[in-house]
Design a protein around this nucleic acid. Structure first.
Lengths: 197, 197
DNA sequence: GGCTCTATATGATTTCAATCACAATCAGTA
DNA sequence: TACTGATTGTGATTGAAATCATATAGAGCC
């Protein structure tokens, strides 16, 4: 999102995380702006039964956990490194100063926040009231359009069935069965368990 | 959100709408910043079967339909006057200039966008995987906390069963039955059909 | 007050995803 | 290559919300 050299010039530092590590937890206070350099981050809520709902999958170049930087409230969800990750972090106060001195970056951030809302509006409108088939296809179409989570060269869907379930609010078994139907009806391809769309 | 005199100074104009009138429609392009002066606005998606999903209920003082102002994409949902409304509108270009000259207003808007995301994250985490009772109580708690849609003096829930259904993704009948149970178990009160929480 | 329209209420039935249970496959590794 | 754990695959059963149907109550208006 923000140029890495700019971030470094403002005092940002790198951090390496191994798969499964928690970066920050829902409900805690925020001291840093986070941007993903390499790897994948799941940004999610975990309910009392340990069930995950994935709010966003973060890919390299994206920032995450931005909300508290703007409204001073605690984190709305937990960030977990899905694979080994390298992130770059900048202190909250430095981040705000950076925005103040670079209004165009601030406008770029407003656009990012607008996009975050758009994704949520899209998810809600496509998930509520609809069949598992519709939900999964809508999600895949979105990822295809925005070139995230699906390899734009080989069409490989870079998400497990469990993650698709946690993004749509379905169960793994339902996702499995539905993906099979979609394969059988030719709407996508499954080869050795991997999904291509 | 923005002081009305400031808006007027920048060239904003008032507009009156009768109940049920459409203010703007999903998928169309945006030319104005909108702020509600009086009345209520439903900001919603309507699916192919005519079924509504309410994304936000807008109350006086709030802006709505802000996304296209920041990312130049079409409206993500439709705005409908729920009652007779007065709104104030400012041309998109004037709005952007206003933000450029008033960075503090821009930061206030970032906080607003952050709050819009928070509501969506909250809704998704509380609606997915949960019972109708949990869904409705979560929504009512949220409204209570943020002092919207529930009268802070008399505790009257200013939403119909249908609107509660359209906010949670449930059916009217389910909402009715669940509200009865909640009344019977003393978690809220129903008097002459009106809900108090 | 009586009329009309909308909102609320509630029973009976159906449907479809969740759940439970277990098998098969795949990927990493010793 | 055999072992291990995670992921995928699939059948049987259940349960809870949607659906269908219809009644009742409340609000606005002449």
């Amino acid at each position: 999102m923000i140029d890495i050299n700019t971030l470094l010039a403002w005092g940002a530092t790198y951090k390496k995380l191994s798969a499964g590590e928690t970066i920050f937890r829902e409900g805690t206070v925020c001291s840093f702006y986070h941007q993903l350099v390499s790897g994948t981050v799941r940004w999610l809520n975990i309910d009392d039964d340990g069930r995950e709902f994935i709010q966003y999958m973060i890919e390299p170049g994206e920032s995450f956990g931005e909300l508290p930087l703007f409204d001073d409230k605690p984190y709305a969800a937990t960030a977990i490194a899905d694979k080994e990750c390298i992130i770059i972090r900048l202190h909250k106060s430095a981040f705000i100063d950076l925005l103040k001195e670079n209004p165009e970056t601030h406008f770029a951030f407003s656009a990012l926040l607008a996009n975050r809302i758009r994704f949520k509006i899209f998810i809600l409108k496509e998930m509520v009231h609809h069949s598992p088939e519709h939900r999964l296809l809508s999600l895949l179409n979105y990822f295809k359009e925005y070139k995230t989570n699906i390899c734009s060269k080989c069409n490989l869907v870079k998400l497990t069935r469990q993650q698709l379930a946690d993004l749509t609010g379905l169960r793994v078994e339902t996702v499995n069965r539905t993906m099979r139907h979609l394969h059988d009806s030719g709407k996508l391809k499954i080869e050795k368990g991997k999904v291509y769309y």
